Amino acid sequence: MATRAQARESVIGLLYAYDLGNEGIVKFVDEILEDKKIRNKQKDFALKLFNGVVNNLEKIDTEVTSHLDKRGLDDIGSVEKSILRLATYEILFESLDKPIIINEAIELAKRLAGDNAPKLINGLLDKVAK
């Protein structure tokens, strides 16, 4: 059975594709999660996260952008942006402890993004959480 971390990692991939202009991916989320063996409770969790981010994207992006110094959201890589969007959604709309959300986002950044990504994500999410 998949873990929540694996479910989040799958959501990052979906958000990445969505960010690159593949908005039609919304129609195939169920199949993609099934292919990644994200099932049952973890599938429900992943769907809730993905749909939550997509449905609240404007508010999430406004929140993240408000904490960027001189840079815009387009200056951040797509993987990093996807991690930030997911974690910001969880901070703003879910009841999980903020340090847990931030730590999970940092771990995802270490596995999926560039060398400077964990530091960037930690700093931005710390500001969002406050």
Rank of each mutant, 00 (worst) to 15 (best):
S78P: 02
D97G: 06
I91H: 05
D74T: 13
G21M: 10
E31W: 11
N116T: 13
I12A: 00
N51F: 15
N116S: 13
D44T: 15
G77K: 09
M1K: 12
A117V: 06
K81R: 15
Q6R: 13
G72E: 14
N51V: 10
R111F: 01
L68V: 02
D75Q: 14
L112G: 03
K36W: 06
E58N: 08
A129N: 08
N51Q: 12
R111L: 08
K59W: 03
H67F: 14
F50N: 02
L125G: 08
E80S: 05
K37I: 09
L47A: 01
L125M: 10
A87K: 00
K59L: 06
T88R: 05
A7N: 03
S95H: 11
I106L: 04
N122P: 08
E58T: 10
L125F: 05
P99R: 10
S66H: 07
K36N: 11
L112Y: 03
K130Q: 14
A7I: 04
G72S: 14
D74N: 14
L120I: 11
A87N: 01
L47N: 07
L57Q: 02
K27R: 13
D61K: 10
F50Y: 12
L47K: 11
F50L: 01
D115H: 12
F45R: 07
A7S: 04
L84Y: 04
I101V: 11
I101H: 00
N40E: 15
V64Q: 13
Q6L: 07
V29T: 07
A7W: 03
P118Q: 02
P118H: 04
D61Q: 14
D19Q: 11
K130P: 08
L14H: 02
A46F: 09
L108V: 00
I121H: 00
L86H: 05
E34F: 14
G24I: 09
Y18M: 02
A7M: 03
I106P: 03
D97N: 10
V26Q: 10
R8C: 04
K70D: 14
R111D: 07
K70R: 15
D74S: 15
A17F: 09
E107C: 04
E90C: 06
E58R: 08
N122A: 12
T65G: 07
F45V: 09
L84M: 09
K110G: 00
Y89L: 01
A129C: 08
L120D: 06
D19N: 14
I25P: 03
P99G: 06
A113P: 01
A105G: 02
E23G: 08
I101T: 03
A109G: 01
G13F: 07
G21S: 12
S82M: 01
V53L: 07
L112M: 12
G72Y: 08
E23H: 14
T3K: 05
K81C: 02
E23P: 03
D74K: 14
N116A: 14
Q6E: 13
N122H: 11
K127P: 08
S95K: 15
